[in-house]
């Protein structure tokens, strides 16, 4: 199979699409950077949108949170956070490994672990918009 020949089968619009989707992806990177709050020690663990733990990144600890599928095990160690056990089928949260900023999201068990987002207690209600 002559691989190079396939490029003759592409059309100008293909490359426009490639440029467009790349632009949107890069833009999303900047938007994500801009919206992620300033660095802080706060680690929040949410289940179904409700904050169940507010922890400090500088204090090593381990917590279990109960989601719809079962127990998700969250570990804080050496100023990093990770999910070590989860009952979800895909284990994306576990495979994400250690993070020191950003978020670990487990969609099936509805668990969200965030690092460094210093926002007022959201357990009251969801902010819409």
């Amino acid at each position: 199979m002559k691989f190079i020949n396939l490029f003759r089968d592409t059309r100008p619009l293909d490359w426009l699409v490639l440029i467009l989707v790349t632009t949107v992806s890069v833009a999303s990177l900047f938007v994500a950077r801009a919206t992620s709050a300033k660095a802080s020690d706060l680690v929040t663990v949410e289940v179904k949108g409700k904050i169940v733990y507010r922890l400090s990144l500088s204090k090593d600890t381990e917590v279990d949170v109960k989601g719809p599928l079962g127990i998700t095990h969250v570990v804080i160690k050496d100023r990093r956070v990770r999910v070590t056990q989860s009952p979800c089928p895909e284990k994306i949260c576990v495979r994400q490994g250690w993070i020191s900023r950003g978020a670990i999201v487990c969609v099936p068990n509805r668990v969200v672990v965030t690092v460094g987002t210093e926002i007022a207690d959201r357990s009251v209600d969801a902010i819409t918009g």
Partner: peptide, 23 residues
Amino acid sequence: FIRRLDAVLYLAPAILFLGIITG
């Protein structure tokens, strides 16, 4: 499921870039 825009936005770039490669 998530209702946390910052968490979803944090995941978006990686997922979209991987989509360009696999696409």
